[in-house]
Design a protein around this nucleic acid. Structure first.
Lengths: 339, 339
DNA sequence: TTGTAAGCGTTATCAG
DNA sequence: CTGATAACGCTTACAA
């Protein structure tokens, strides 16, 4: 059943193993006639090349490594799943590893992948990732959390957030709170910048309109519980002082914030609009459904795989490939009530 | 940097490559003294054995394949993550694949894994999985969705559900609705059986107490939307007729059901208790927090890996290893109001 | 207990 | 364009 190797094929086809190998690897210099005949025999015999032997002799393992901080995070889960699909389409498989946002573990995992001879690594760097030396010669594409000095692929967080703020502004909101991500996280800072951009811009064009003053930014981790307490913080003031809309840096934060509002007796979206970021499936499962800025996860994954397989030219240093985000309208945003 | 092979080690240690190999593989017949010396040199040189060569020559790849229906499902995501950790502890890595509950894709993935020479496969079979021939000689452990005729590892769904029903009974509920999973799914049927067990048992010991009559079971897919419509179905009757508690077969169903109740103006848990099953992180993120029966995912994953690595004897045919579930108390269950 | 040497299944080089 | 043939880095009889 499984004893069939390249030699059997060669013998049965009356050619040499070399020829079979060339056919297997789409080497151009083989007669079409021959190629057809041998291919038929291959299929007939049910022969499959042995990946281990291939990756030992050749320099290709058809294996891609993915290192992410946390598979439990729906965003990363979808990223991995999309990458798996994209890779499978090219005959590649995926080895996943979780770093738990721990730099040492991450370094170890990358070393493992290197020794596995993976053909490339897709990396979402851990947050305390600072001085890791990436192995040279091995294609690595940094995804989502872009690192200065490395090429990468990600959603355009900054413009995505700007888009979201515009949406709130157009609804008539003027006191727009922002729950920021952890300060040491690159995408968190990008999102914050997007918020500041949009607010600044609104201020400039708002001749008479006042953009309200009190602190409207709260820093928090990306998770649910942090979003909740940040929400509490932002909402803990008189009605005509507190924000009429809150933009959270992640859907999980947004959902936590919804809960905070609920506990304070503030109806959504009547008295408070909430906008999330990410577009995870969970967003459409809340009551009311969360309006959110969706990242094109599949596109990101596909692009990353394409780059690793040299199907697409890699992004240049400090000049990442960015994908546009779009607003996914739910039921948590509406025009503000008059004070 | 990377040119160091077993020969370098051997030369530098003044031994043969064979000896080094034996040391690498913990072969018993090597002097401790020698072992220590060579090990030191290995570490010193930063030598790492080439996995491709190893898996080609030997019969071990230190690779485990995992095939699941959907990585986006938080339950499976956690399963994979836990397995990855467990495997890493033994020097093993994980190749993940998604079948999308599609039998053909699943078969293809399994074949790929076989040719990769993985040392074992952890499989959550797709639901339209009927007549797949599993490759012989390759350890496969079926997880979560047990298939009759195969050995497997899973949570004890039946007893878990029974536990949940007991909880509701103790709170005083007598009309307990049940949202079942899709009829063709094995765990769904196990859960349904658990419900029937508990109800039956309650009926027997309930001398005078009446266990209410009207249809209290609704079949639905495991997802959110299905849970919602099943909830609507069960709740669409007069207050003194409808269930005072609903047990859903998945957390996602339960959350959908919460939304249905909400839309009908039925307060939770005041007028309706809701109990979920799975214990995904999402369960603690709803408002109010969902009470649920938690599956010990990490234990399941660890056991599956242990079996694949022969660290633990495999479960016998038709005699699966089952792990107990436990109730995770949230805020959606309370004593029923009088009619 | 340790050394020697023969492959494992492919790919790549080099002739023909 | 195709056929021999030598590696690739390691494990494992078999010998010593």
């Amino acid at each position: 059943m499984s004893k069939v190797g390249i030699r059997e094929v060669a013998k049965l086809a009356g050619v040499s193993t070399g020829t079979v190998s060339r056919i297997l690897n789409d080497h151009p210099s083989v007669t079409n006639e021959l190629r057809a005949r041998v291919t038929a025999i291959i299929k007939d015999l049910g022969y499959t090349p042995d990946p281990s032997a291939r990756s030992m002799r050749g320099k290709v393992s058809r294996l891609i490594g993915i290192v992410i901080p946390d598979l439990t995070n729906p965003f990363f889960a979808e990223l991995v799943q999309s990458a798996e699909q994209a890779a499978a389409n090219h005959g590649y498989n995926i080895i996943v590893m979780t770093s738990f946002d721990h730099a040492a573990k991450e370094a170890d995992r990358i070393k493992q992948l290197t020794s596995r001879k993976v053909d490339g690594i897709m990396l979402v760097p851990s947050n305390d990732f600072h001085t890791l030396k990436l192995p040279k010669g091995l294609p690595i594409v940094v995804v989502d959390r872009l690192m200065p000095g490395y090429s990468g692929i990600a959603a355009d967080h900054r413009n995505g957030v700007r888009l979201g703020v515009e949406h709130l502004l157009q609804l008539g909101h003027r006191r727009i709170g922002f729950i920021s991500g952890p300060g040491h996280s690159v995408p968190a800072n990008d999102r914050l910048r997007g918020y500041l951009d949009a607010i600044e811009q609104a201020r400039e064009r708002a001749d008479g309109t006042r953009m309200a003053g009190p602190p409207l930014i709260a820093e928090a981790a990306f998770d649910y519980e942090s979003g909740r307490s940040a929400g509490n913080y932002l909402l803990a003031r008189a009605r005509n002082e507190r924000p009429t809309a809150i933009f959270a840096s992640s859907d999980q934060q947004a959902i936590g914030c919804m809960r905070a509002a609920h506990d304070l007796g503030i109806p959504i979206p009547a008295a408070l609009s909430i906008l999330g970021f990410d577009g995870i499936p969970l967003a459409s499962m809340t009551t009311p459904r969360l309006t959110t800025v969706k990242q094109p996860i599949q596109d990101i994954a596909a692009a990353a795989v394409a780059v690793l397989l040299n199907k697409q030219t890699a992004p240049e240093l400090d000049n990442p490939i960015l994908f546009a985000c779009e607003i996914l309208k739910g039921e948590t945003t509406a025009p503000p009530q008059p004070d």
